[in-house]
């Protein structure tokens, strides 16, 4: 049984059946990619996993517990962190503060009235955040405003913010969307490093085949709201159904 079990998930927006009957099983310590053409329902599926949307049918179990009906912060506290398509960071705060916030969230839970502590006196948290920044080669930028970073660095920072929480499952929504080739390669290297150095399960939604094939252990191909196939990257590459979905040969009746 996988760490994430999606069974029979369906979601309808008015007349549009965004997700049909999605079954998905993500195994622990693997990288599972979800690919598919535009409008295949990849983002809808991801939003159902993190509590932004509630599916009409089906169930989503994480580590034996249902995530349905829980709010995003509760799902995060269960051990699921999310990287957004455009990096979501705290632009007005320093890079170090950005990484300290998830540290506090992990230690203190979703709310703690810690009004008489001192951020600079939290040595454990500082150390943890600085080590994390060192791991992603951003320690030299610790005191810059996060909003002034380059796109690639913002992505790195967001990744650091997720990783410092030591999530059991990391969800990535098109982590290289809109990036220049060099930045994309950097991100791939970073993700590979994470995959090899940490016990972490990753679920990546991606458009870029280069990214997918260099990272994924398993790939699910989604088209028109239903999974077409699920297999290893080697088998997916030559699969006729996949080519059909990507080359647009599916007929619309």
């Amino acid at each position: 049984m996988g760490i994430l079990e999606v069974k029979g998930v369906g979601k309808r927006f008015g007349g549009l059946q965004a997700l049909g009957d999605v079954n998905l099983s993500v195994q622990e310590n693997t990288v599972h990619a979800i690919i598919g053409p535009n409008g295949a329902g990849k983002s809808t599926l991801l939003n159902c996993l993190v509590g932004k949307l509630i599916p009409d049918t089906g169930s989503v179990m994480f580590d034996g517990q249902s995530v349905l009906g829980r709010s995003p912060h509760e799902i995060n506290q269960m051990g699921i962190s999310r990287v957004f398509q455009t990096p979501e960071i705290f632009g007005d705060l320093t890079v170090l503060e950005n990484v300290m916030i998830p540290c506090f969230a992990r230690r203190d839970g979703s709310f703690r009235m810690h009004a008489f502590g001192s951020v600079t006196g939290e040595y454990d948290m500082l150390e943890k955040a600085e080590k994390m920044l060192d791991d992603v080669n951003m320690l030299s930028k610790a005191h810059l405003h996060a909003g002034s970073l380059s796109r690639g660095d913002k992505r790195r920072l967001e990744m650091a913010m997720c990783l410092v929480q030591e999530p059991r499952l990391l969800l990535l929504d098109e982590p290289t969307a809109g990036m220049a080739r060099a930045d994309t390669n950097n991100t791939i290297d970073l993700l590979k490093e994470i995959k090899h150095n940490r016990d972490i399960t990753m679920c990546i939604i991606e458009h870029d085949m280069h990214v997918v094939f260099s990272l994924a252990d398993r790939i699910t191909v989604l088209a028109q709201g239903t999974p077409l196939v699920e297999d290893t990257p080697q088998n997916i590459k030559g699969h006729p159904k996949v080519r059909e979905a990507y080359l647009g040969e599916a007929h619309v009746d």
């Binding site: 993190v50 709010s71 995003p72 912060h73 995060n76 506290q77 962190s81 999310r82 957004f84 979501e88 960071i89 705290f90 632009g91 007005d92 705060l93 916030i101 998830p102 969230a105 992990r106 839970g109 979703s110 709310f111 913010m161 929480q165």
Partner: peptide, 16 residues
């Protein structure tokens, strides 16, 4: 201050 910056990121960081 994080609330002022980005509430979305806060929620997905496990903060209510």
């Amino acid at each position: 201050r994080a609330v002022k910056c980005n509430q979305n990121r806060m929620r997905y960081t496990g903060l209510n």
